[in-house]
């Protein structure tokens, strides 16, 4: 008997959807667009994050040495660097090499250095941090330690650069929350309205059902099912469309840049579930609100 009732509810919901198909298609379309906007944002966010992570893997640090550094001090520094789990000495740049690099970089302007009696450039170690797990390597701590060691003049690393990206990611998240919040309110409004229209279009039937002894829930559940179907459909369709868009875009990126310079990935499984669940939950909530608010007819 339970089964029979659910059969009835789903049948009623489907009949309802077919009867009000225009309203449903419009509602579904708007919901899908909202979810797509949110999904694209997620996609952008995920990729942005990966790119930063990848760039973070090639973090570099320059340790500038005093001119009068002793071999012992140099060895101490090398020893310290080797102890760092993720750091690797890329190369040692002597004063002469530094000057040569600079000259090469300046090109035609290199004449500026002609007649310079002392080389003003310091020797340095170039470090690379492999696999620093995002931004978790404490570059600041390393810098402070190194600067206390003898023979080190200054330590520079791409801190500002990184910080600004971190700030950007935070901004991204904030914008995501705001856009998401607005979109979800919109989706809620759409579902509530769709179900409200469905209820209004069947008010005669609802009245008669109540008069022949239907309980409130018996009358209400088909509308909840209707909302739920809309949520499930729009969730699945939005994810599929997002994937199609992703396939299209990723082929374009590869075409433009030859080799895939940017590793363009799709949103992970959890985010797909998130989009789907948000869609289902919102539509259920929306129909619940509609059923609660527009039922005294």
């Amino acid at each position: 008997m339970r089964f029979r009732l659910w059969f009835y509810f789903i049948k009623e919901a489907l009949v309802n959807i077919v009867k009000n198909r225009v309203v449903h298609v419009i509602g579904l379309g708007t919901m899908i667009i909202s979810l797509l906007i949110f999904g694209s944002f997620l996609l952008l966010f995920v990729n942005f994050n990966t790119w930063i992570y990848e760039w973070g893997q090639s973090l570099t640090m320059s340790i500038y040495l005093n001119d009068g550094i002793s071999d012992l001090e140099k060895e101490k520094i090398v020893f310290y660097i080797h102890k760092l789990p993720s750091a690797e000495v890329k190369r040692f740049i002597s004063k002469e090499e530094a000057l040569r690099d600079l000259r090469r970089a300046l090109g035609s302007q290199a004449g500026l250095f002609e007649g310079l009696s002392v080389n003003p450039l310091p020797a340095s170690f170039e470090l690379a941090f492999k696999d620093p797990e995002g931004n978790k390597v404490n570059l600041k701590g390393i810098k402070q330690k190194l600067e206390k060691m003898g023979g080190v003049e200054e330590v520079q690393y791409s801190e500002e650069w990184l910080r600004s990206f971190e700030g950007l990611i935070d901004l991204f998240k904030l914008i995501g929350f705001i856009i998401g919040g607005l979109l979800f309110m919109g989706v809620l409004f759409i579902v509530t309205n769709t179900i409200k229209l469905a209820i209004y279009s069947r008010r005669d039937e609802i009245e008669i059902l109540k008069l022949v002894g239907a309980t409130d829930w018996f009358v209400k559940i088909p509308f909840l099912v209707e909302g739920l179907i809309q949520g499930v459909l729009s969730g699945i369709l939005a994810i599929l469309m997002l994937y199609c868009g992703y396939l299209f875009l990723s082929s374009k990126i590869i075409c433009f840049l030859g080799i895939a310079m940017l590793n363009f990935v799709f949103i992970p499984y959890e985010y797909m579930m998130l989009i789907f669940l948000i869609s289902v939950a919102l539509s259920f909530l929306g129909s619940f609100i509609a059923v609660g608010r527009f039922f005294d007819i």
Partner: peptide, 20 residues
């Protein structure tokens, strides 16, 4: 819901029939 169950025990022929 009790009211609904009561109505299952009362048949009502409405003046305007109320057919769908």
């Amino acid at each position: 819901s009790k009211l609904a169950l009561l109505r299952r025990n009362i048949g009502f022929v409405f003046q305007d029939f109320k057919l769908l």
